[in-house]
Structures are given as C-alpha cells and as structure tokens.
C-alpha cells in the first residue's frame, strides 16, 4: 500500500474539509486512482444526512501515485477537524511565505506513512519564513486504514431520477428563515416545481398544528441536459406540480452550515424519497473546485403532502 501526492490546490482542499468538518467529526476518505471520495455516513449523526462526494484527483493533486492490493484503492477513517487543521496550517504557512494563493510554489507533499505502528497521513512542506529563511513543517494526521472488505459494506444510497432540480438561493439568505422554521417544528417540507415560474417552498407545520409557515423563493430550474428537457416536454410531467420531501429540519440546518464556504447549490427533489444537494465549491459547472453531494432522506410521511 503506497500513496503519495503533491497537494496542489490547498485552498480548495481546505474549503472542502471546512464543509465536512461542519457536518461530522469523522469521515471516510477514499483515494482512487482518478478520484478522491469523501464519505460521511448517516450513522454518525442523528439527522440522517449523508455526504457522498467525488473530487477529481486533478483538481487537488499532482504527481499522484497510488498503489494497493485492493484495486489501487486506499480507504481511511479520518478525523475531519485534524485534517482541516493540518490544511489550514499549511495554507497559513504558504500565505506568510508570500506565495499568497498557495497554488503552486512550494511543494506540499502528502503521503501515507507509519510511525510507531500508527498509520497516518503525513503532510510535509518547506517554506521560507517572513525573514526568508527556510522552515520545514510536517503535519501527521492519524488515520485508520479501512480494509476493502469493510468498504464493501458501505454503499451509496440509491435513488430514482430527480423530479425537479433547482438552483438554491445563496446559503446565507436561506439560513435565517430556516432557523426560524426549525424553531416551530422538527420536520421541514421542501417543495419545488419545475416551472416556469419555478419556486421553492420551505414549509413547516407547528407540532400541534397551530401554525403553518411557508417561505417561498423564486428560483431557477436547472436543466441538466437535452434528454432531461425532452423528458420535461413529455406530456406526463406536470410543470406546476410541487414535488415535496419532508426532512428532519436539523439536517437542513446542518447542511446550511456550509455557508462559510463559497459555492453554489443545486437541489434535487425526489418526490417523497430524498433531497439531494449538490454543493459546488467555488463556481458551478465544469470549473468547480469540487462537488459535495449531500443526501438527506425523506421522513416517513404521515399525512397528505
């Protein structure tokens, strides 16, 4: 089992970990020959939120070398905060040394290592200090290597094609209404139609049915590809129909914690099944720094939608 790479894009890696750290203390990172996967399973948080994300190796690393007996895949359990701290430290060091962006310049070497029988992810770099002298920094992040067998038990949730896809308003905008809604009830209904006009509704009903609050956002419908459009044109699809999913309000709040990182979010609603949130770090589209996929399962519905 060998693994070694240069972290080229420290700021993005750092941002990704910032998001993950907000969500869960521990996460699984899986290094594959072409992608890095970050997985947060629902069992570690009560809200049932999961993260399944794939980040292309080329967006973060170069000189990426990986070798293992399990199809050259290395999976590990890692404390998100520790990895984040290491990356922040590196970012900080690169910033003081004057290279500013942290892109390129000094080499940040990341490798799998073992010290005192403890597996760890080692980050090493050499940067000039403020006075121009060289300093060398190493961060050892403790990891737990997961066997391939363990990984087979971890499966991505299955879900049907999304009924509607909308571009969420900016997360800071959403935060305050959602906080207020959460105070009223633990269940949040997320509804959206196809449109136009496309609207997103966040709705709660008080625990004793005494109050019903609806927050409506005008949003943009996202067309993924031609195929989708053709499907949408199909007569069976009602453009006005609201597709709904009841979720644990807390999990949406947790997701909104990601507002600290700039990004765009596309929400996919699978009617009465799940809410999937695609968080594009930086800008949406092909040049996104990375995509984090949040999966929030639907609550078992106990009434008319």
């Amino acid at each position: 089992m060998r693994f070694r790479a240069c972290v080229e894009n420290v700021p993005t890696f750092c941002k990704i970990m910032q998001v993950i750290d907000r969500l869960q203390k521990k996460c699984i990172i899986q290094f594959k020959p072409d992608v890095m996967r970050i997985i947060c399973l629902s069992d570690a948080n009560e809200a049932g939120i999961q993260v399944w994300s794939e980040i292309k190796v080329s967006t973060l690393f170069n000189e990426y070398r990986i070798q293992s007996n399990a199809d050259n895949i290395i999976s590990m359990n890692i404390a998100s905060a520790s990895l984040l701290h290491a990356l922040q430290g590196i970012q900080n060091a690169l910033a003081t040394s004057g290279t500013g962006s942290g892109l390129g310049g000094e080499e940040v070497l990341m490798k799998l290592a073992k010290k005192n029988d403890q597996a760890l992810l080692n980050f090493a770099l050499t940067t000039p200090t403020r006075t121009g002298r060289l300093q060398s920094l190493t961060y050892d992040v403790r990891i737990e290597v997961l066997r391939a067998l363990d990984m087979t038990k971890i499966n991505e949730p299955l879900c049907p094609d999304a009924d509607t896809l909308v571009l969420l308003p900016s997360l800071p905008t959403l935060r305050s209404p959602v906080e207020r809604l959460r105070a009223l009830s633990s269940t949040l209904f997320v509804r959206a139609n196809i449109g136009p006009p496309t609207k997103l509704l966040l709705e709660v009903t008080g625990d004793e049915n005494e109050v019903k609050v609806k927050v409506e956002f005008g949003v943009k419908y996202v067309q993924i590809n031609r195929q989708e459009e053709e499907d949408a044109e199909a007569p069976g699809k009602d453009k006005e129909r609201l597709y709904s999913v009841p979720i644990v309000a807390k999990s949406f709040v947790k997701f909104l914690n990601c507002h600290i990182v700039n990004g765009h979010v596309i929400a996919a609603i699978c009617h009465r099944h799940c809410l999937i949130l695609y968080f594009y770090i930086g800008s949406a589209g092909a040049d996104a720094g990375g995509v984090l996929t949040f999966y929030i399962p639907s609550l078992v519905d106990d009434g008319p939608m």
Partner: peptide
Amino acid sequence: QLSTELTISADE
C-alpha cells in the same frame, strides 16, 4: 489526532 512539527533555522 494531529501532530505537528516545525523545524526552523536558528538564524531566526
């Protein structure tokens, strides 16, 4: 979970 080391020149 994290151990950090820094080596710096004595000239600092």
